[in-house]
């Protein structure tokens, strides 16, 4: 375990006889990490364990060198936006943040100033003095986020933070996450919306049935899934020519003309050999190529191969 990383070492959590997470070992580096998995896979349990809201049955956790058993130290550097859509009774947006900041040791003037700043940052300046009970779902999501970031944490853990936000709000929040991650922070985001995880994450942790099934950058994870041929989309003016020649390669298992003959989708079982050969093929054929892009190096595809309908490709 190092002071600069979040280390989860052989952690298991049982709720009585029900398994929460099982022998999870991951090291999370700074940047934006997506935590993906189906409902009940253990995402929230893992996040709760990182924050000390749950205690591991087995194993150990260190967040930047601090154990979750030490909340006083831990939450100076960690902010957690939970999935719970509930708030202290009678709180207004301002009083909710103010109380949190006061517990961080800020005096009244500092807490008031910081509350205003954070409300402004999450776009709730106008609604700050209203009761949270009267907020819309999106506003409640924003105030939870404000509570998580109000003390400027080094580690930000966000459980389904985009739920309930409108498209504009989602875009704003995604920008905020990216900005926070750019500053060298750890930002861990769980989401069901794979497209968004793909858009924002530097790396992913895929969890299924309480176990981590993959971790790392999308490309690296995809590269490890050898049982599923890699898909490459070549946009060009003569897709049929590319398809015909590609079939000569022993590791190409499929070539399909797509989108009204504007490209060809190739599937290969040997990515390392494929790309040099494709380069040579293009040069020798005289075909005008617009783009060559991996078609299944996305969270969605990887998720599908490992967890979804295509599961079994592990």
């Amino acid at each position: 375990m190092t002071a600069g990383t979040i280390s989860v070492s052989n952690v298991s959590k049982f709720y009585g006889e029900v398994l929460g997470v099982n022998r999870v070992t991951v090291d999370i580096q700074p940047g934006l990490t997506g935590l993906v998995g189906p409902n009940g896979s253990g995402k929230s349990t893992l996040m709760h364990l990182l924050c000390g809201l749950l205690r591991p049955t087995r194993g150990s956790i260190s967040v930047l060198g601090v154990s979750p058993d030490q909340p006083e130290e831990l939450f100076r550097t960690v902010g957690y936006c939970t999935q719970y859509d509930s708030f202290p009774n009678g709180s207004t947006g301002s009083s909710f943040l103010n109380h949190t900041l006061a517990l961080h040791g800020l005096d009244r003037a500092q807490a008031d100033r910081r509350t205003r700043e954070i409300l402004d940052r999450v776009g709730l300046t106008e609604a700050g003095n209203r009761r949270i009970a009267g907020y819309s779902k999106g506003m409640r999501q924003r105030i939870k986020l404000a509570q998580a970031i109000c003390h400027d944490p080094q580690v930000l853990i966000l459980d389904e933070p985009l739920n309930g936000l409108d498209p504009m709000g989602r875009a704003e929040m995604i920008d905020l996450f990216k900005e926070l991650a750019r500053g060298g922070r750890h930002v861990i985001v769980s989401s069901h919306i794979l497209h968004e995880v793909d858009l924002i994450s530097d790396g992913v942790i895929m969890i299924h049935g309480g176990s981590v099934v993959a971790e790392g950058s999308i490309r690296a994870v995809r590269g490890e899934i050898t049982a599923q041929p890699l898909q490459i989309l070549v946009r060009c003016d003569q897709p049929h020519a590319i398809a015909a020649r590609a079939f000569a390669m022993p590791h190409v298992v499929e070539a399909r003309i797509v989108d009204g003959a504007t490209g060809v989708l190739l599937r290969t079982t040997n990515a390392a050999a494929f790309f040099p050969e494709l380069g040579r093929l293009i040069l020798s054929s005289g075909v005008e190529v617009e783009t060559v892009t991996p078609a299944d190096e996305s969270v969605h595809a990887v998720y599908d191969y490992l967890i979804g309908e295509g599961g079994g490709g592990r």
């Binding site: 924050c51 909340p71 831990l74 957690y80 719970y84 708030f87 009774n89 949190t100 961080h104």
Partner: peptide, 20 residues
């Protein structure tokens, strides 16, 4: 009461010793 109202976690997510 706070457990039933599902708001206790906000206290547990603050940098406060549980004894405090």
């Amino acid at each position: 009461g706070e457990i039933l109202e599902r708001s206790l976690h906000y206290h547990l997510l603050a940098p406060v010793r549980r004894e405090v």
